[in-house]
Write a protein that binds this DNA or RNA. Structure first.
Lengths: 211, 211
DNA sequence: TAAAATAATACAGACCGTCGGTCTGTATCT
DNA sequence: AGATACAGACCGACGGTCTGTATTATTTTA
């Protein structure tokens, strides 16, 4: 076959397969031949749609970002919620998504997949913080449910901590460790007038660690 | 020449050269041939002392860790200082060292050198936090200069924020951004009874950004 | 306006250069 | 004589390129 009528499907095939492999084996250890075998496409096909292996990675990360940006934007723009409540909803949504394997911000590896992680971190600081968290913080400051002298910085730190430090996906953790981190995190945010982690999410995180 | 009488010098040559190259060009983009050319050694020599390219990286990171572990241990064991003061000294020392190019925890790249970064982060969480920061926190709690309900978690977060988020080495920053982050950080730590960044370090960080 | 010519697209797969790593050889020291 | 400290030819794998080809889209021409 040549000249497929729906090349977009091919692109999606590549993206789907690659993201699965990157998450399973890590970016470095995933070879182009792996992707070729799994997609049943040829090298020519893949390099027709992507300029390089790294371009595939970037596309994968971008697509992940986009897929939950929608969810996050929905929370951000939901009316009738105080800033602090929105923020809690945001964290809930974000965590839930990542537990479902739809992994949004952070991913299973850190040592195993540093390149992936670095890209994610970049998108956290450059997009998620200013576009989703900061607006909510400002709302919360306006409606009095949040008090923060440095909202830009708080937005970054909140995301960094929740996605990179708190997230149980990143390192093997005992239930006690997870609970202690959550308690610390809640105490930390209380300084700014809100608490983000309720028992539901904490239990979900603990449960997630078992698997 | 064969059978050098001081093979340890050769190892150091390799380590010195490799760390320079890794920091300059990034780990991935540094080829073995680069190291061979710069050291004027042969492939055989390098693979005689190291099992793989990654082994060199790990050795480089370890040596960086060791070189300032001594400095940090000295601060930790210095008598006659309250916990909070020791912690401030620790941060000072740590920052100073990294400014001098002796780079201790974190390094210039994040996107450019993710593997390096991942290893550093690992050593932060596994070694620096429990071995250096935590003991000081406990001291501070005992002598009343620090109050923290979750010292283990606080130790991790302090290091993560100072080395990964605050450190101007990691991303290009304007003086205003640096100052805002420092102000936020100081306000954050005030919750626990101490402030870590004085005007001296902040100015040094701003100055560092210019270069 | 329909057929023919032309161009562009969507692949297939042989091929290539580079890089990490191995292996054999050799000189020097213990 | 054996171990150590190299030297450097060699190898396989991998990312990337290049040429070829079938199919579709577009333009030209009768």
């Amino acid at each position: 076959m040549a000249r497929n009528k729906h090349p977009e499907q091919t692109v999606q095939r590549i993206l789907d397969t690659a993201s699965k492999l990157f998450l399973q084996k890590g970016y470095d250890k995933t070879t182009l031949q792996d992707i070729i075998d799994a997609t049943k496409l040829s090298k020519g096909a893949i390099y027709h749609h992507f300029a390089s292996k790294e371009a595939i990675l970037i596309a994968v990360v971008d697509r992940m970002g986009d897929s939950n940006s929608a969810a996050l934007a929905e929370v951000r723009d939901r009316p009738g919620l105080a800033g602090a409540e929105k923020l809690r909803e945001l964290v809930r949504t974000s965590m839930r998504l990542s537990f479902q394997g739809k992994i949004l911000h952070m991913l299973p590896f850190l040592i195993e997949n540093p390149k992936f992680m670095a890209l994610q971190m970049q998108s956290i600081l450059n997009e998620a913080a200013p576009d989703y968290v900061l607006p909510i913080l400002r709302e919360g400051i306006a409606d009095g449910s949040i008090r923060a002298d440095y909202p830009e910085q708080l937005a970054e730190v909140l995301l960094l901590l929740s996605d990179l430090w708190l997230h149980p996906i990143l390192r093997p953790s005992t239930p006690e460790q997870v609970r202690a981190r959550c308690a610390f995190f809640n105490q930390f945010t209380k300084q700014y007038g809100f608490e983000l982690l309720d028992d539901d999410i904490i239990d979900a995180m603990v449960e997630f660690c078992r698997t």
